[in-house]
């Protein structure tokens, strides 16, 4: 039994930092990564309706048929939507809190597939649906086959 004079303990909390390293296999999507390294954006194409998808899929998400054809999506696309975060958010790449200076945009590429990325235009008032954006890449020697090999999209 606790002695009467012992103080009431405040609630205790432990920090539990833990680093977890995953090794995600891209499998059939490796082709997409290799193309990024070369400064190209490619997408899988549905044999039923010709719709292109990014992320590339082994089967069409709509028609559930195997997709084997890859189509170049070009370097430009039309803006579908954009947003800017006005408070610090977690950087999903590192887990650190970060203030995001650049808006995130959703784009329909010339080849028809849709993908997301950052935009060089920080004034969201100037970002209008339908405007054309172009990919700006990391230098070739720095590319790792990841979607952030595209540094940002800039208005044309």
């Amino acid at each position: 039994m606790l002695k009467k004079e012992e103080p009431q303990d405040p609630s205790v909390a432990f920090r539990y930092p833990r680093v977890i390293t995953y090794k995600h296999s891209l499998g059939y999507q490796s082709k997409f990564a290799h193309a990024l390294k070369m400064g190209r954006i490619i997408a899988t194409k549905c044999p039923v309706d010709g719709r292109c998808t990014i992320p590339p899929r082994i089967v069409c998400p709509m028609h559930h048929v195997k997709q084997t054809e890859w189509v170049d999506q070009g370097q430009r696309g039309k803006l579908l939507s954009a947003f800017k975060i006005n408070f610090p958010m977690f950087d999903s790449r590192t887990g650190d809190l970060k203030s995001w200076e650049t808006p995130i945009v959703s784009i329909e590429l010339e080849g028809g597939a849709r993908m997301d990325g950052w935009c060089s235009e920080t004034d969201t008032e100037k970002l209008k649906p339908g405007m054309v954006l172009e990919a700006v890449w990391r230098p070739a020697e720095e590319r790792q086959g990841r979607v952030d090999d595209i540094l940002y999209w800039k208005p044309v």
């Binding site: 090794k23 296999s25 891209l26 499998g27 059939y28 999507q29 490796s30 899929r57 082994i58 089967v59």
Partner: peptide, 10 residues
């Protein structure tokens, strides 16, 4: 190691 999760499921 070279297989995507989706391929296993498929």
């Amino acid at each position: 190691p070279g297989v995507h999760i989706g391929e296993l499921l498929y």
